[in-house]
Structure formats: structure tokens, C-alpha cells
């Protein structure tokens, strides 16, 4: 399941990232790696998603939400 398909207030874990290696590294540097647990806080206009990760609130562009495979936890 893609992150873009998740429903609001659900919790999920990133299981894979469909990006080339270099870009996956950058995503990990930004705090989103395989195994990261997220909570979907808000589905925003034009397909962007607001997620929370601990104290952090991260806005993900629609381009990214379609590249992150997740599972509900």
C-alpha cells in the first residue's frame, strides 16, 4: 500500500522506498527510512500529506507519497 492511500489518523510503517539509491539516502537523512513509524495527521490539498514522527510534523509532497510503500501498524 502506498502512503498516499492511507487514511487520516492511521499509523503506518515505511516498508520500502521506490527511489534510486542516492535519493533513498537523502530521504533517510530527512528522517524517512525503512522502518520509520508515522501517523497520518492530515490529507492536504493536491495530494500532499501531513505526517507526524515523534515531535516532528512533516509535510510530504504528493510526488513522495506515491513512492513510499507502507503497512498499517
Amino acid at each position: 500500500m502506498l502512503l498516499s492511500d492511507c487514511s487520516i489518523n492511521s499509523r503506518c510503517e515505511i516498508v520500502s522506498i521506490n527511489l534510486p539509491n542516492d535519493e533513498t539516502i537523502r530521504l533517510c537523512e530527512l528522517g524517512l527510512s525503512k522502518g520509520t513509524k508515522l501517523k497520518i495527521c492530515q490529507l492536504c490539498p493536491f495530494g500532499s500529506v501531513l505526517v507526524s514522527k515523534g515531535t516532528e510534523r512533516i509535510g510530504l509532497s504528493s510526488q513522495i507519497t506515491n513512492l513510499l510503500e507502507v503497512k498499517y501498524i
Partner: peptide, 15 residues
């Protein structure tokens, strides 16, 4: 050079 700058797609939102 990578076509997409991933950093611009992930926005850390301040309080």
C-alpha cells in the same frame, strides 16, 4: 545531477 531535489518534497513544518 538528480532531476528532483528530494529535500524540496519533504517539508519540516515548524510549530
Amino acid at each position: 545531477i538528480p532531476q528532483t531535489n528530494i529535500s524540496n518534497l519533504v517539508i519540516h513544518l515548524p510549530v
